[in-house]
Design a binder for these strands. Structure first.
Lengths: 191, 191, 191, 191
DNA sequence: GATGAATGAGCGTTCATTCAT
DNA sequence: CATGAATGAACGCTCATTCAT
């Protein structure tokens, strides 16, 4: 097994274990075992558990952003762009439940809170498509004139909740339900 | 200090510590110290930490439901009832950030997931007002004809997200913003 | 076994293990086992290993100073006082080889170096009898006019070396040898 | 880089790291990095860390003995020879603080104790000049009639202590102080 | 009933050593 | 030969839980 393979195995295993059991329910030793490596090996690739988690998040971001933006056309009307992005996001979550569960753990921890704080303060980070879309939506008077943060919550709050319920087995989303859900989100943010 | 007092002190202390530091950042010894009791004493009132957390949740539920339903009038039109409940809920969260943070911890853990599963399967539990309201809303064709779970997510997803952002200091909610937010939620669920 | 007993057992065990195997050869678990307590118990009495070692040193100091100064008469002539203190010191080491070995470990580690630095900078600490004696010796022109530190080294360098060699079994000190050794030290510092 | 070069690099690096951070503060990986070789390479030249340390000691001995004996004239009077050797020793320590710190680490560890035991039992080893000098001194009745070991301690105890204090910055030795110190040592051993 | 000292399994992390390349 | 990625035993330390007082 070559070097990049090993790192990948660790990332996969860590994502799985953390998604399934949370940060505190996923000891390094367990992650190592699942990855099929020695416990010490993890520390060749990640300085410590905290750093590993942060890089795991980066990994998820790097994989998800392109997927979500695939086929996104910034010149289309706001509504269409909104529906596209939210649908893509929901699909991504459904098709990558491990990523979703990991993200939930992440954002529900000090790591994630700090991350959001940084994102909201500085304009850095990759969710700029969303920010742009919502700023456009407000300035074109297509969306409600509310603080950006609230608009985000109106749109993503339901998406996340629905994804969670699907992954936990409380509902079984299909294309029709997804469409309706996303359109309901649009109803929430549009004027 | 009499027996019920002691239990109350423990509950208060545990809620505080868990809200502030999470389940894993709140050792029993620390909770005991904050409660002003011996570490062993906690185990007279709660079989173990897991049980304590579950009962802590019950405690929050018991205190919050009456508050949220205060002034609720089931004979009023759906929209008004919806706005009343959501506003009350959001107010409750803002005024009881400790409860809110605890609930987030709870629902983002195996405890919470199991709890929701039980709630959704059997019809037990206290959120029947909500269930009734939404079922009424659907049958009166005032709300979208979607699975109850999704309707819940459309309504509460944004409420929870907005409450979190307020408590974390990302926005500063006032009465006007609360009203607009809740009305946006209504836009999300109404036909 | 009552509380003070337990602390004492830990102190004794730690002193023994560290004297025998050095700081790094004396894991907390081993010390705990030797003390007949659980590993976690040590941390009820000492914040961590570093703190434990520092307090161990204090413990040795507190026990040794009175013993060494027993019968010391500051009004006697310099030579007599010197012989008294050095003899007492050497006796103390020989009769408390564990203390001696611990002190060697201590002074040969960052802990000890820092400790000496503090002692030499500020005038705090308990070796003031020695300092006084040597300052008297210099000002009365009975001892060589050298920096205090060097005078200390001339006196204690041999004492420590001889104690070590006795404890390691390279020589067998008796009263006669002790007397001669201490008098040789006096020859080293006197004018 | 040829084979002997590599070994030399490792020796130099190990000496430096151990002198600066102690045996336990100098991991093999760190030594390898400092030496500019792979971690595994060290094990081509030294069976394991213990062996490496022992050979490191040999290396220091081999380099120091010639230096110390440079200009030593066995036909001169005892006193002169003593002063010569002790001065040379002290100079050597001051000019090679890394060696000195390493030697302190070494003699304060099981390695060093065993080494001295071997030296004192069998007559092997390189400090024969000292032994000869002291035996001469005793038989010529110029030195005190004490066991050799004690005579060594009287002479070298202060030398080592003074060197340590200089290297740690507690005093600043110059030629004058060195002379006085060495002469004080002579006072300690002479009749 | 209340206590808190005691416990020890389990955690994150380090590092001497090995061995496939 | 030389490498350095991989290993896993061992470390210092934490904390849910127990139980003698």
């Amino acid at each position: 097994m070559s070097k990049p393979d090993k790192r990948e195995e660790i990332v996969r295993a860590a994502l799985e274990m953390i998604a399934e059991h949370g940060f505190h329910g996923a000891p390094m030793a367990m992650i190592a075992e699942r990855a099929g490596v020695g416990a010490g090996t993890i520390y060749r690739y990640f300085e410590n558990k905290d750093v590993m988690i942060t890089e795991l998040y980066q990994n998820v971001e790097d994989r998800s952003y392109p997927l979500i933006q695939q086929g996104y056309m910034p010149e289309k009307p706001i509504r269409e762009r909104f529906l596209h992005l939210c649908t893509a996001l929901l699909h991504y979550f459904i098709e990558n439940p491990l990523d979703f569960r990991f993200l939930e753990q992440f954002f529900n921890s000090p790591y994630g809170v700090e991350h959001r704080r940084d994102k909201l303060m500085g304009n850095k980070g990759g969710c700029d498509v969303f920010r742009e879309l919502f700023e456009d939506g407000i300035s074109q008077q297509v969306m409600k004139d509310l603080p950006l943060v609230i608009l985000f919550d109106l749109a993503f709050g339901p998406i996340l909740a629905v994804a969670r319920d699907h992954i936990l087995g409380f509902i079984a989303l299909d294309e029709v339900l997804i469409t309706w859900t996303v359109e309901a989100c649009w109803d929430g943010v549009r004027r």
